[in-house]
Write a protein that binds this DNA or RNA. Structure first.
Length: 266
DNA sequence: ATGCCTAACTAAGTTAGA
């Protein structure tokens, strides 16, 4: 059945096996229609599909031993897989990209490389991955289809997206090259939903485990949902489920979401 | 300039995260 509103979320879960109770509690309480997960940190056979089915969700996933891993969950239905991995990266062994159709929307779930330490090969890999994303996203945007690019971008877009830049100036997340890639992606026409909903406020989606950063609200905004031209006028609400970050043994990220009005023509 | 904290893998110590 076609839904009138769609709540689409992205959540870097930092280990789906460790965090499964937290995931199920969040699904139960917030009932998102579509969920993009990153950092599963498990091989495909370790994905807890039975528990996710029991919670009322279908899913597709691309796991990897120890690191990375992405999944797309859909309430009351199965996501229809459209793509696994970015074009131009057929030899890339890291599980960082999934794309699926759900409820008439093409949902891309991405986990952009962290890139630290920089400079170095990991930062080069980050920028190369970003370039592939930009190239692929251009085709998606220009298609005119309703598309959401959701995930952990590992980019702090501006100094307004972090509590304080002082101890992060050399970090890959704030480098001009990383920010320039994000800016070029947006320049294709995408709408950064959280920033559109809250133009002036400090919004964070990640608080590291160090130095009591959660307790002092010293966060970063690095999890983003970008909306295509078709979807941007349908943005009803957006937010961060901060309560999840405050639970015992939480991921260092909080679920970040949009609500889209799918009822009528815009 | 580095570690802080947390987890995976594996069995005490390294690698990675951001």
């Amino acid at each position: 059945m076609k839904k009138k509103t769609l709540k689409i979320a992205t959540f870097n879960i930092n280990g789906i096996r460790t965090r499964l109770p937290a995931l199920l509690a969040w699904l139960e309480r917030e009932a998102p229609d579509v969920v993009c997960l990153q950092e599963l940190k498990t091989i495909d056979s370790g994905f807890p599909i039975d528990e996710i089915h029991a919670a009322g969700y279908g899913a597709i996933w691309h796991g990897q031993k120890s690191w990375n891993g992405v999944a797309i969950l859909a309430r009351d239905t199965d996501p229809i897989e459209a793509r696994r991995g970015l074009p131009g990266a057929e030899d890339d062994t890291q599980s960082r990209y999934l794309e699926a159709a759900v409820q008439g929307v093409l949902v891309a779930c991405l986990y952009l490389p962290n890139g630290n330490p920089q400079p170095g090969p990991k930062f080069d890999y980050k920028l190369a991955w970003f370039e592939r994303l930009i190239r692929h996203a251009k085709g998606l945007f220009d298609s005119g289809h309703p598309v959401v690019l959701a995930g952990d971008y590992n980019v702090v877009p501006t100094d307004e997206d972090i509590y304080n830049t002082r101890s992060w100036l050399k970090d890959a997340l704030l480098q001009p090259e990383s920010r320039e890639c994000y800016r070029r992606l947006l320049a294709q026409g995408w709408t950064d939903a959280l920033r559109a909903r809250y133009p002036e406020e400090r919004i964070y989606t990640f608080w590291d485990y160090f130095r009591q950063h959660w307790q002092t609200n010293s966060g970063l905004r690095i999890d983003h949902l970008l909306l295509s031209a078709d979807l941007a006028p349908r943005l009803k609400d957006a937010g961060v489920d901060r309560w999840v970050r405050g639970e015992p043994h939480a991921s260092d990220h909080a679920p970040t979401w949009v609500v889209l009005d799918m009822a009528r023509r815009k």
